[in-house]
Write a protein that binds this DNA or RNA. Structure first.
Length: 496
RNA sequence: GCCCCCAUCGUCUAGAGGCCUAGGACGACACCCUUUCAAGGUGUAGACAGCGAUUCGAAUUCGCUUGGGGGCACCA
């Protein structure tokens, strides 16, 4: 590798950045970082009609969240700017003019209506769709007439009528296309904006891009790009097409598959380190066992050769598992800090804000190994914060218990707990375990009833830890409330 | 319809002719641990799409078939 590595991520600002595009960015970024090259961000905003307000900001936000910093591009600058295609229009227009004057391109005056009818006819006759070259050999007077009529032409590439073209893809190997199957595609639209094909070639050359790493969906456009390079007399870059990410239905992953934007994963409580690791592993692997890799390990070990050829389905179950792993690996304090915004957002509005950080610090270790996403922390800890528990009193009456025995157990517990001086995990255990024996209950029965009484749930963190954090006063109050609802239950429903 | 690409457990993958009676991970199931849930531990089920060819020997090479995906816009 003699030339410096210069790679780019070139999204078009048409919406929020989705994981497919982000993976492309990641491969490019890893390539640059591994070889000490440059990672360039270029905005391909050549479709005025599809431009979405705020999309560029979202894309940059997504990249930054994952730590995919760019060496050149918007806000970073660089010697090859501007890095926004709508600010480089004259370059593309000059290239298009040059191709026309060389005889490699021509003006086309066909109306959208005519093209549409042409395609409909081709479809009807089961012919391959494609421009019929109606304007390819227009004479000078004919063109003058069209121009006089006020028709704004497009510029089309004059595709060779025969021969073939091959490119040696780093991942897929040699790929050959028969030129007779390709049509005269548009280079410059009638609004004087370039199409992707033209802009991409002009810019990759101007920015001295060494490797074009992009999705497999671009393979069939590659011959067009190669032909433009050839016509312009430029040296093409190395092409690296990577396989696609598929949805559960095996179709190319898209918004139809639900929350697929990297920013949505952030909102849904996935850690950036999880996403970085997980996405890198779609279509790329280190070996037969390593799955958990840090960003630095990924940089150190990344290579194009280890990108596979087969499309991969985005496996959300595995993502959840991996996120759980990364959550458990967080230091307790880090977990608290990252939880705070999710608690703030997810806890009921009635709970006073700001949340008491010290109390949160006591709570979070109890659920850290139970959370699979950060978005779950609110649900998992809600009972620690609410003033009043709301649950079905029948839950207090566990297996092989009656309302009487449950009440008795709670009364005894209430009495003993009231006398307990130190309300801590160990002292609670020392007090409560013998109590079960004394009551003639299995520990699970007593603890189960107490769990519901103190948390309102049958599923919660370990009881003694939970009670210790809740504190004596709150626990006693909740047990009192549980006894109340138990009594109401028996008076209202004597059958039990 | 035409062109291109791909093909190992349900999913992500390892595998670049003998190391493969195909390894790992997620998920599933079972058991253990256990006050619930997790986490953790142990184990089980589970794949080389099919057919030919090459070879002493094919998951690995070649061909065909089948299946899947992508592309065929004045979108990227």
């Amino acid at each position: 590798m003699t030339n410096p590595v210069r790679v780019r991520f070139a999204p078009s600002p048409t919406g929020r950045p989705h994981v497919g595009g982000i993976r492309t960015a990641m491969f490019n970024w890893l390539m640059a970082r591994h070889y000490g090259g440059r990672f360039i961000l270029r905005i391909e905003d050549t479709d005025v009609t599809r431009k979405v307000e705020g999309a560029v900001a979202d894309i940059m936000e997504g990249l930054r969240w994952l730590g995919l910093d760019w060496d050149e591009g918007p806000e970073a600058g660089g010697d090859y700017g501007p890095y926004v295609q709508s600010q480089r229009l004259t370059l593309y227009q000059a290239a298009a003019r040059r191709l026309v004057s060389q005889g490699d391109a021509y003006y086309c005056y066909c109306s959208p209506k005519r093209l549409e009818e042409m395609r409909a006819e081709q479809a009807r006759r089961k012919q391959p769709p494609g421009y019929d070259r109606h304007c390819r050999e227009l004479s000078e007077p004919e063109r003058a007439q069209k121009t006089a009529d006020g028709i704004k032409p497009v510029v089309r590439f004059k595709m060779p009528l025969e021969g073939d073209i091959t490119h040696d893809d780093v991942i897929y190997g040699k790929v050959t296309f028969d030129l007779s199957t390709l049509d005269d595609f548009v280079l410059l639209k009638s609004d004087d904006y370039p199409t992707y094909h033209l802009a991409n070639v002009v810019d990759d050359h101007a920015m001295e891009i060494s490797h074009v790493i992009r999705g497999e969906e671009w393979i069939s456009s590659t011959p067009r790009h190669l032909l433009i390079y050839r016509a312009l007399g430029y040296q093409p870059p190395q092409y690296v097409h990577h396989p696609l990410i598929l949805g559960p239905d095996h179709a190319k992953l898209s918004k139809r598959h639900g929350d697929v934007s990297i920013l949505e994963f952030r909102e849904n409580g996935y850690l950036p380190e999880t996403m970085f690791n997980f996405i890198a592993l779609i279509g790329w692997s280190l070996d037969d066992k390593t799955e958990l890799l840090t960003r630095q390990q990924l940089i150190d070990n990344f290579s194009l050769e280890r990108i596979g050829k087969t499309a991969a389905i985005f496996n959300r179950e595995k993502l959840d598992w991996m996120n759980g792993v990364y959550i458990r690996r967080l230091s307790p304090e880090d977990f608290v800090q990252r939880s705070l915004p999710f608690l703030d957002k997810g806890l009921p509005a009635g709970i006073k804000r700001p949340l008491p950080t010290e109390y949160v610090r006591q709570i979070m270790p109890l659920i850290q190994e139970r959370a699979r996403t950060m978005a779950e922390v609110a649900e998992l800890t809600e009972f620690f914060f609410v003033a009043q528990l709301d649950y079905d009193a029948n839950l207090l009456v566990g297996k092989n218990l009656t309302q009487e025995s449950a009440s008795q157990a709670l009364e005894m517990a209430q009495k003993r707990l009231g006398q307990l001086a130190v309300f801590a995990t160990e002292s609670l255990e020392i007090l409560l375990r013998p109590l079960a024996v004394e009551l003639g209950l299995k520990t699970g029965q007593l603890f189960g009833t107490l769990r519901v009484a103190t948390t309102g749930r049958t599923i919660a963190p370990p009881l003694f830890d939970t009670m210790a954090v809740l504190g004596k006063e709150r626990c006693l109050r909740r047990i009192e409330a549980a006894l109340d609802s138990l009594h109401k239950l028996s008076s209202g429903n004597p059958s039990h």
